[in-house]
């Protein structure tokens, strides 16, 4: 089955893509670029770098812009899926949704309208097992945004390695946040994945941080041999 992966550049969509590649044929990545930083559906930090990640993965990218207004952005998502179907003949869509019923419900409805299969390989997964598999499978993931206590500015740009995962685990227990950041506690950016032919190097980045809210904005990045 030819599939398009809804792609934010974060760990969940890239991990879902990798799972899809093991079972079916991933024909393209699909990104909805939101102008609204508060978008309900689409992550925003560093979304422009999705093109670089797609190049690293050797996959075509379908990119659609949205103003990011609450329900209107769903029409833009439908437009993106239609474009992916026309250009790459996709028969289904893959998402990295873990717990968000809001997100999953809307994607499922759009897929139904467009007669597309819908796959959510991380849906209600064991979060501990998922994070372990992410690290063991040689994904290299950095924290690109923090939006809750206890994350200080030192987390911005930090790689989620085994030590960071231990600290996330402690934070998840102590502050009742999700281990995966699914509750919007943090955002991630993937610099390397098992299916990347080259990895991403961040050459220049800026940080803004205040009161447990911060973003790592990647200003310049390139691809290097692995």
């Amino acid at each position: 089955m030819r599939l398009g992966v809804l792609f934010s550049g974060g760990k969940d969509s890239l991990f879902a893509c990798w799972k899809a590649m093991q079972q079916e044929e991933v024909a393209c990545l699909i990104t909805v670029v939101s102008q609204n930083p508060e978008s309900y559906m689409f992550h925003t930090p560093n979304i422009r770098l999705a093109a670089l990640q797609a190049e690293a993965a050797g996959l075509p990218l379908v990119e659609v812009e949205t103003a990011g207004e609450k329900e209107a952005e769903l029409l833009d998502l439908a437009r993106a899926l239609l474009q992916a179907r026309e250009q790459f003949g996709i028969e289904g869509v893959v998402t990295g949704a873990i717990l968000s019923v809001y997100q999953a419900t809307r994607v499922q409805r759009i897929c139904r309208e467009l007669d597309l299969w819908c796959f959510n390989p991380l849906w209600h997964a064991d979060q501990e097992a998922y994070m372990e598999e992410l690290i063991n499978s040689r994904f290299r993931v950095i924290i690109a945004g923090v939006f809750s206590c206890p994350f200080d500015a030192s987390w911005l740009g930090r790689e989620i390695d085994r030590r960071a995962l231990d600290e996330l685990r402690d934070a998840a227990q102590k502050y009742q946040i999700t281990l995966t950041g699914e509750g919007g506690e943090f955002e991630t950016f993937v610099v390397d994945a098992p299916f990347f032919s080259r990895r991403i190097v961040i050459e220049e980045a800026s940080r803004t941080y205040r009161n447990y809210n911060g973003i790592l904005r990647i200003e310049r990045a390139g691809l290097v041999e692995k």
Binding site: K19, Q23, F119, P121, W123, H124
Partner: peptide, 11 residues
């Protein structure tokens, strides 16, 4: 062992 297994059997 399909791509849907994790979504419908996994939980």
């Amino acid at each position: 062992d399909s791509l849907s297994r994790a979504e419908f059997v996994g939980p």
